[in-house]
Design a protein around this nucleic acid. Structure first.
Lengths: 339, 339
DNA sequence: GCGCTTTCAGTAAGCGCTTTCAGGGTGCTA
DNA sequence: TAGCACCCTGAAAGCGCTTACTGAAAGCGC
């Protein structure tokens, strides 16, 4: 019924509490006693109470990770990297999914703070909302003061914490160059919520490169929607309804591109026959779409791994550390040269 | 610096520890003092120490979830359902990914036990390995005795705990019937690791239905591989190398079917022109493959939701509760009638 | 106005563990 | 053989919180 405590183990092994604790934690104890304690612990199916342990000052072994949506392949891939490193370090990951609700994100950080997680990872674009930023800062500052580690993936403005940044801007620019190289001159963009920093970077990088090449991106050729498959579907449909005349569509994320494929298919348009499509991220599945999607490949797993690593290693420098990971344009069959 | 404690708050508000605690927990306290405490807490950015709280007897607010691989869309979808219910109940989810390593699965349960998680969810097929089963039982039994709740998705043999079971057997049988109805008589199967209960059920259900229809499934037409995209690719390739003469391939999971698509494409074979392909699960992405995949649709989100619900509600009955969720065959363009 | 119940703040006892500190063997040196 | 270091073990002090339990003040009926 109740739990087996260290005291039960100590009594069973006929040693003191202190000795039992030491034996279980691998501190120096006479082999004889050591074995007796371990045997007793096993016999009683003892599991130390992590809370008591944490309270007594032992170091915590479970880090917190907050992402927008585990269901999204992008986050799943990054989380995969995080978990890999966590597993290698014997860490338990407390993964929270915010469902893209800023309020909930802050609530989660607060819970993680209460859990005294030694590190908190924030995965995914932040919100460019001053109110939100202030609230998040208010939550994070005392946490950092208390010795907590924070690392973020893909958000720059938020606080001065260690970050892993995919090079969205240059990746999008490079993609634009590649598409221009294929002869495209009329583009459309499926964009995400403007308050996400990622959107600003990718759209900005793409547009600037076009501009530099003397190609204008008609504001009417940009449709905004959620960063989801359905968002991509809606945005693409909207563009089609407006009378799309682009030869190439850039979806700010692969997930949106997937939705775009569906929208195009529903209208009887072929990719890349009628229109070329390019995405961003290189989530695993886009390789298997028909046609395989041209995209900017990000090392998704590494994004997570590096963030975890940052959170795990002390920041000796006085400034925030920033790991920049470049994307690489991968041309697949969803983009064709303009005839 | 160190952490702000309840004592600091009490002092700042000029009340006793007990009063501060009560005010913060919404117990009856003179409004005047109540406000003073809350104000002080806010001013100091106080966050209660969840460990001290747990140790002192307050109820825990973070449940544990163990799955094979968050990166897999199947688990991601189920986890999505879990998180949804968790969020609605103000619960934090500690999500662990075992990378399909049985040892790690047990290690995680042990950690979760140490965390005194009020509930543990095991998502995904169990292992049919007596040694593993014993070890897992040894871990779970004391947990249950201590009042812990356990719910599992998709594993029957393991212990007598509440479970959510997709109807793999009948789903596979129904699929077989549908495929027979299309005129197929020569089948091949991409199967998973035989020690997974899911494999036995799906393969069994499929094979039995064929047998009942007088159609034999040649053992040489079954290839085993990991339940992953690459596993599917390998298994399909192996079948092709063996000289596949089936008109229809059943992949035990959609993820494997995705790999099969790639293998087929690499050999220049078309789906369903040269061979029909069917999967199982109906993960979101298969709708967007070309061609869209015929599969057995499972209510993935509900799988997770129901499991969480089971874990959250007391089991008043004396027996384990079982929620069975049926699958529904969805015929899409990856399967064609035999000419 | 007296003695009762009721309300609510404060005191203090843990929750289960780690760790400092003290004490008692043991083995070594002189 | 006495003296000194060590090395281990055990006793005890918390870690930060919740929650009986205690006690004082206030509200009530007669």
């Amino acid at each position: 019924m109740s739990h087996v405590t260290l005291e039960d183990v100590a009594r069973a092994a006929e040693v003191s509490l202190a000795t039992a604790s030491r034996a279980l934690n691998g501190r120096r104890v006479t082999p004889h006693l050591h074995d007796r304690v371990l045997a007793a612990a096993a016999r009683l199916a003892y599991t130390p109470n992590a809370h008591a342990r944490a309270l007594a000052g032992a170091s915590r072994r479970s880090v917190g990770v907050v992402c927008h949506d585990v269901t999204d392949p992008y986050f799943a891939a990054v989380a995969g990297g995080v978990m890999r490193v966590a597993a290698d370090n014997d860490l338990l990951v407390m993964l929270a999914s915010t469902f893209r609700d800023p309020e909930r994100e802050i609530a989660y950080v607060s819970m993680l703070r209460a859990e005294r997680a030694p590190a908190i990872l924030l995965i995914g674009s932040g919100f460019e909302d001053p109110r939100w930023e202030r609230a998040m800062a208010a939550e994070l500052a005392p946490y950092l003061d208390g010795g907590g580690r924070v690392a973020v993936v893909s958000r720059h403005r938020t606080l001065k914490v260690d970050s892993v940044l995919p090079e969205n801007r240059s990746g999008a620019a490079e993609l634009a160059r590649a598409l221009l190289g294929l002869g495209h001159r009329r583009f459309a963009v499926l964009s995400g919520p403007p308050e996400l920093t990622t959107v600003a970077d990718r759209l900005g990088g793409f547009r600037d490169e076009l501009t530099a090449a003397g190609v204008a991106l008609d504001p009417g050729a940009v449709a905004e929607a959620a960063f989801t498959r359905d968002g991509g579907y809606r945005a693409m449909t909207e563009l089609l309804d407006r009378g799309l005349d682009a030869t190439c569509v850039f979806a700010c994320t692969d997930v949106m591109a997937v939705g775009a494929y569906a929208a195009l298919r529903d209208r009887g348009l072929s990719v890349p026959g009628d229109v070329s499509v390019a995405g961003f991220d290189d989530i695993p599945v886009v390789r298997d779409l028909a046609p395989p999607l041209t995209t900017v490949a990000l090392p998704l797993h590494r994004l997570g791994e590096e963030a975890m690593r940052l959170a795990l290693t002390e920041n000796t420098a006085r400034r925030r550390r920033v790991v920049r990971l470049p994307g690489a344009v991968v041309l697949r069959d969803s983009t064709a040269p303009v005839a």
